[in-house]
Simulated scan of single mutants.
Amino acid sequence: MNFKELLTEDRAVSPVIGVILMVAITVILAAVIGTFVLGLGDQVSESAPQASFSFDFSAGGGNGFNGGSSDYVNLTHEGGETLEKSSIEVDGSDGGVNQSSPFPNATISAGDGASYNEVNSGETIRVIWTNPAGGSTNTIARATAPQ
């Protein structure tokens, strides 16, 4: 066989390219269909909202942040996305935080605030968002009470 003939011979190129393209299309279609059938498509689109909160810790009693029931935190939504009140929870690492003044509306937007009392010294306060579609939770803000 001549070397020039080998370089100009292209009889098998077209079927090989066709098979590669068909396999690639099949794999892509299977991945897309599998994602939506298994419900992964819904979870990809639901990410935690972007919101900023400020924490103002205050000692209401004469004993400062020593575990007194009058120690509190004022939580204020500073900016970002508007949140549904039903999907937000405020939790303390010691488990003793109680809401004393709730957010005023069904939605929480910039400037809205709430108060939580029974904050202990060094306790970490978290704002937790729960996905309304179910399942996942995300901490969108956190702060620690002063010692």
Rank of each mutant, 00 (worst) to 15 (best):
Q50T: 10
S58L: 13
S52P: 04
F57E: 03
A30H: 02
A51I: 07
S54P: 05
L38P: 01
F53D: 00
G61I: 05
D56S: 13
A59E: 13
G39R: 09
G61K: 01
A59Q: 12
A59P: 13
Q50W: 01
L38V: 12
A51Y: 07
L29Q: 04
S47G: 09
E46T: 02
S45H: 04
L40F: 15
F53C: 01
A59T: 01
A30F: 08
P49V: 13
G61C: 09
A51R: 11
P49G: 08
G34T: 15
A59N: 14
F57D: 07
D42Q: 09
A31Q: 09
D42P: 03
L40N: 14
V32H: 08
V32L: 09
G41P: 03
A48F: 11
G60F: 14
Q50R: 12
A31V: 04
G41H: 11
V44Y: 15
E46H: 08
V44N: 13
A30R: 10
F36H: 08
F53W: 00
A51C: 11
G41T: 00
S47C: 03
G39H: 09
S54L: 00
D56E: 09
A59C: 04
D42H: 03
G39P: 10
F55R: 00
A30G: 07
A48P: 00
A48G: 02
V37K: 05
V32C: 01
A30D: 03
N63L: 15
G41Y: 11
L40R: 14
V44M: 15
N63H: 14
Q43H: 11
A59F: 03
L38R: 03
P49C: 10
D56P: 08
S45L: 10
V44A: 15
S45E: 04
G60R: 06
Q43R: 13
F36M: 09
F53G: 00
F55S: 09
S54Q: 07
N63M: 14
V32K: 06
L29N: 12
Q50I: 07
G41W: 07
Q43P: 00
S47F: 04
S52G: 06
G39E: 05
S47H: 03
D56R: 04
G60P: 14
A51W: 02
G61E: 12
Q43V: 08
S45V: 11
A31F: 12
Q43T: 05
E46M: 01
G41N: 13
S45D: 02
S52D: 06
F55Q: 06
L40S: 10
L29M: 14
G60C: 10
A59K: 05
S54T: 01
F55L: 06
T35Q: 11
G39A: 05
G62M: 08
N63E: 14
V32A: 08
S54V: 08
F55I: 10
A51H: 02
V32M: 09
D42W: 03
S58Y: 15
F57K: 08
G62V: 12
A30W: 07
G39S: 11
S58P: 02
G60S: 14
S45Q: 08
T35H: 12
V37A: 09
G34C: 14
F53Q: 00
V44D: 12
T35P: 04
P49A: 10
F36I: 07
S54D: 09
I33L: 14
A51M: 03
P49H: 12
V44H: 15
A48L: 11
S47P: 00
